[in-house]
Design a protein around this nucleic acid. Structure first.
Lengths: 110, 110
DNA sequence: GTAATAATTAACCATCTACTTAATTAAGTC
DNA sequence: GACTTAATTAAGTAGATGGTTAATTATTAC
């Protein structure tokens, strides 16, 4: 995964995973059991979701005895923001180029 | 779909659809046939992807005779940016609250 | 009107995804 | 050590997804 193709969109495509991130955003850090308690899903289901979020660098995990404490991680959010910002910038440039063309050589393209 | 739960993450979870948006970002607007020509996929495959992108408000389409001219659409990008920004803001607040707690009542939470 | 073209929709299917229960691993308590 | 608990991994599966070809719709050209 490079920052030109974020895995984080894929991670965020699932509503449960978005909810997990929102819960984590509200509480700074949270053990896996507390995260699971917010949902009616099985614990293995939550564990699988957390695994995907970790791989996408949207969360990080600290091992404390029996507990796994999860936190949000900047990198995954940065990747997405960059992709959105870059795409928007290219779009703005393309519109600029189009406008330049339109002012230089008026034709019936529009 | 409300802006609290963007469909656009789901739309962007597929690499082909991300590529489509990147192409559109480079060229301001593009007929469906030209979009399809950028890929080795079948035209119906591209059509299906465009349908999903339209539903997620990431593209808009203008009918011109036989042609369908596609453009990027702000709304889908705005939805995603808002979700990311909001989640980050809640996170920052949660960290602030934690820091306030830590400075008021030092305990062994850390 | 016929024929060609652009594009979508329909139907199909191999593969993937998000869930489940079962099994396993690791840590804590007595 | 036995038992409990937190959490993950393994195995299984119903439903979804992203591709295909076939069929259809709409527009254009003659």
């Amino acid at each position: 995964m490079t920052s030109s193709d974020p895995d984080s969109f894929t991670a965020l495509s699932d509503p449960t995973r978005r909810r997990i991130l929102e819960h984590l955003a509200q509480t700074a850090h949270m053990p896996a059991s507390d995260i699971a308690a917010q949902f009616t899903l099985s614990k293995p289901a939550i564990s699988q979701h957390l695994k995907i979020l970790k791989a996408a660098q949207l969360v990080s995990v600290e091992v404390r005895g029996q507990q796994r404490i999860y936190r949000l991680n900047q990198a995954g959010f940065d990747d997405m923001s960059e992709w959105i910002t870059r795409t928007r910038r290219h779009w703005a440039q393309a519109l600029d180029n189009l406008e330049t063309l339109l002012t230089e050589t008026p034709d019936d393209d529009r």
